[in-house]
Every structure is written in C-alpha cells, then in structure tokens.
C-alpha cells in the first residue's frame, strides 16, 4: 500500500505474464538494451571511414545557426531561400541564436509569408494551387469522414472545425478586402 512501504501487488505473476505475452522479459537485463548506457563508444564508427567527412560544395550561401563554428560538411539543398520569406529567414539565422524566441518566431512568420508568396506565384503558372485537391478533403467522402467522427468519444472533433477556417480564412479575408477596396475606388471615380 502506498502509505506503507510495500508496493501495491500486481494482478499477474511473472509466470502468467511470460505465458500471455510473447517475449516478456527478453530485455530484462539492461545489458541487452541497445541504448543503455546512453553514451556508448561505437568502435566500428558505424561504417564511416573518415575522421572528418569530405565537404559538400556550397553552391549558394547556406544559411546557418550562429551556434555553429562553421558550415557543417553535409547539408540539405532543398528550397534555397527566396523572395520576402527568404529575406526574413536569412535575417533570423544571421541575427538570433536558437536560444532566442525571436529566431523561431521570425522563421514561423517567414513560413506564413512563404505560403502566401507561393500561392500567388502559382497563379502565374499552368498549375495554380487547388485547395480542394491539395487539402485532400475529398477523402472525407471516400474515407468515412462522418462515421469516423460521429458517435465516437473523440476529443479532436472540437478543434477540427477550426481547420477549414485556418486554410480558407485568409483567402476569404483577402477577397473581402480586395472587393471592398475595389468598390471604394470605383465609387470615387
């Protein structure tokens, strides 16, 4: 009992557990657990045959955390920064360490700007963004959107109604503002 020194008893004995659960206790000994202890010298270097790796060529100035001594030898080359979001991103990296909220808040702001820039840019291409196909919302019909939610005790249904607002809200707002402005302008002339 908790208010005395014994541990509350378990419903099943070790033998019962072993019989019911395949592999029960196979890793009882911490020595058999691959991540114990946390730091363990890896003699084989996991296949690496260098002390410090070759350097990947830097094809454009690669943004990096100011907590790094130098550009690490290997890095991803997806989506170089561009446009206004690119300017914000470069600034966030150049100016603030990972320890500063400003670093992350600027990067998040840049993500929102990037989405807008990209949506607008897409309208100049043969393949404009299509919110119906890109949100995959049609799977609501093919994947039982109704019965997957109704009558279940799901706690996420309460805020899922916010998702369409997040996706469509800014567009509705943008259209409303444009229409209002256009009306005002035409009214004046």
């Amino acid at each position: 009992m908790t208010y005395t020194s014994d541990k509350p008893p378990l419903a099943e004995s070790t033998d019962q557990l072993r019989a019911r659960i395949p592999g029960w206790g196979a890793d009882l000994d911490p020595k058999d657990r691959p991540s114990v202890p946390k730091l363990r010298w890896q003699e084989d270097r996991t296949g690496a045959h260098w002390d410090f790796p070759d350097r990947q060529p830097e094809k454009w100035p690669r943004e990096r955390s100011i907590e790094h001594k130098f550009l690490p030898p290997v890095f991803g080359t997806s989506c170089p920064p561009k446009g206004v979001s690119g300017v914000i991103r470069r600034f966030a990296y150049r100016k603030y360490s990972e320890g500063r909220a400003a670093h992350w808040l600027l990067l998040l702001a840049a993500d929102r700007v990037d989405a807008w820039e990209s949506h607008l840019r897409s309208f100049l291409t043969a393949r404009p963004d299509n919110p119906i196909t890109e949100t995959g919302v049609l799977s609501e019909f093919s994947r039982h959107g109704f019965s997957s939610r109704i009558g279940q005790k799901r706690s996420d249904v309460k805020h899922q109604v916010l998702d369409p607002v997040i996706v469509a809200g800014p567009w509705v707002l943008a259209v409303a503002i444009t229409v209002t402005l256009a009306r005002k302008l035409t009214h004046r002339s």
């Binding site: 730091l39 010298w41 890896q42 270097r45 955390s65 907590e67 790094h68 290997v74 890095f75 990972e98």
Partner: peptide, 18 residues
C-alpha cells in the same frame, strides 16, 4: 555519433545545433 547519439549528429545540420 562516436558515442552512439546518431540522432544528435553535429555534421549534418547547418540550420540548428539543437
């Protein structure tokens, strides 16, 4: 990596040290 913390490699991510 030498100590088994592969998830925390220091040579592959310019954007963050964490």
């Amino acid at each position: 990596c030498a100590r088994g913390l592969y998830a925390n490699c220091h040579n592959v991510n310019p954007n963050a040290t964490a």
